[in-house]
């Protein structure tokens, strides 16, 4: 029950953050670790600032 609730809460937080243009930090860190081990892992604050700026850049896709 507790696990289900905490999972639901996580999903809600993830949805809320995504709606503000901030994707899941843990997923990004995991992605960096697996695919780009040479890159420096940003702190959550750095990650957040970068995403905040990126959201209001208007159109324009980016790729890693």
């Amino acid at each position: 029950m507790n696990i289900a609730l905490s999972k639901l809460w996580q999903r809600l937080v993830q949805t809320a953050r995504l709606s503000c243009g901030v994707p899941d930090y843990d997923v990004y860190v995991a992605h960096l670790r697996t695919h780009h081990p040479e890159r420096k892992i940003p702190t959550y604050a750095e990650f957040f600032r970068e995403r905040q700026t990126a959201r209001y850049k208007g159109t324009g896709g980016r790729c890693c």
């Binding site: 997923v27 990004y28 695919h35």
Partner: peptide, 8 residues
């Protein structure tokens, strides 16, 4: 890419 393209 963990940022814009993420299976969610």
């Amino acid at each position: 890419d963990g940022l814009d393209y993420v299976p969610t």
